[in-house]
Design a binder for these strands. Structure first.
Lengths: 233, 233
DNA sequence: TTCGAGCGGTGATTCAGATCACACATCGGT
DNA sequence: ACCGATGTGTGATCTGAATCACCGCTCGAA
């Protein structure tokens, strides 16, 4: 396994990034039982309704978290960034996974088996607390998601919300007011609960109103305020 | 405070119900710091966007958990039954409450301050684990909620889902296939994300198709299977 | 009793967005 | 260069549900 061939300094570097808020003893205990692997794009970490096997810590790359109805329609809950942990709720409660996790780009991900995690949680309250904090944040995002999706029937408002959210994520980057568009219109539709065609038309409309400019896969948002005025409508 | 006047046997009875899966020592530690109060109908335990003060354990009665958009529209996330704990996520993460909790009937509720809870969690991993389990279940319900709401555009499908869910809740009661209707059409609309009028029309339609019969505030569902066939549509 | 507020029921109208049906661009592979 | 796959752009059409406007009922308060 590639896991066991990475050298010690690499492991510590990765640990620093993911476990920065854990004490060294707990972090190393976790490292002991973690299986770190590199996944290609499109790999499915776990699927909705599967029995829980363990948690996945995203160390590098982005992962798509989605649910899908029996008829095939899909709703993307959120895009998980490096540093987050997936599957905590299912592992702790023992219920099946509520969503499907699929890599959107090559990812480095550490897997921790359910049994190992539960054992460590029991002997160390700090770890339990740490996981609970992560879970709380998942919960918060999910609540916000549901609120944004349901309490704005106009599709343009939802898209505006999504774009503003992206701006916030990129706020610290070198180019604020500018977003790399890493999703197809279809996927964007699945994030805001509309059809692909509607997304295309909305983008066209936004361009016409000079709310956005597109340049290849780069979106420029000249004045964020105008976009925000679509929200709350 | 009424809290301190309840006698010991009453406290143990209540504890049994809520803390049944906690060891006696942890349960009693919790009881020490819990403030148990009886709330009237319509009391607001906490409101969306408030800073977290602590968690609320519902010992008796039902609590409505909702979010609302700035325009005044409301979405009811779920009806919380006795035995559940509200506000865990906010207390642990320190973020503001994501929803508003309002009693739907006279309730007996124990409040535990954030500081007390965090202190106890730190010194006792079992409690942390217990809370995490509760939080996991909240998370699961919320995920299911979002999936059911978004992945079925037809309003009748959503209503059918809601009714079937109610049937499941009452499955263990003396009268299966029968539900006490404790909400207005308006509230039902807020649960499934439709207008009040649509709910009225849907009920009328369901009656016409003999999927339900109404008798005062009692709903009878003769054959659940027919209702379920509306789902998946 | 009367009044008024809240809830339930129903019609008429309207519209945002789903759906269908295309055409076109881009791109990687054989 | 060819091809298929995949993503995008755009019209025409249709429809489910929101919205508005109104009526009647019930129940509790004055």
């Amino acid at each position: 396994m590639a896991t066991h061939t990475v050298n010690h300094t690499q492991r510590l570097a990765a640990a620093d990034k993911t476990f920065c808020d854990l004490s060294p003893s707990v972090a190393s205990a976790l490292e002991e039982v973690a299986l770190t692997t590199t996944y290609p794009t499109g790999a499915v970490l776990f699927a909705e309704a599967q029995a829980p096997r363990g948690v996945f810590m995203v160390r590098r790359g982005r992962v798509k978290l989605s649910v899908c109805g029996c008829d095939g329609r899909t709703l993307i809950l959120r895009i998980v960034q490096a540093g987050e942990v997936l599957g905590i709720a299912s592992v702790v409660s023992g219920r099946e996974y509520e969503a499907t996790a699929e890599t959107q780009e090559p990812c480095e991900i550490s897997f921790i088996r359910q049994s190992d995690l539960m054992r460590l949680m029991r002997i160390d309250g700090e770890l339990a607390l740490w996981l609970t904090r992560h879970l709380s944040q998942d919960y918060s995002s999910t609540c916000r998601e549901i609120r944004d999706l349901m309490l704005s029937d106009s599709a343009s408002e939802k898209l505006a919300r999504l774009l503003v959210g992206w701006l916030d994520h990129n706020a610290e980057s070198k180019n604020p007011g500018q977003v790399k568009l890493a999703m197809t219109h279809e996927e964007i539709g699945q994030m805001i609960g509309t059809s692909r065609e509607t997304v295309t038309r909305l983008f066209a409309g936004f361009k016409k109103q000079h709310l956005i400019q597109q340049n290849g896969s780069t979106l420029m948002i000249p004045n964020r305020v105008a976009l925000e005025s679509l929200i709350t409508a």
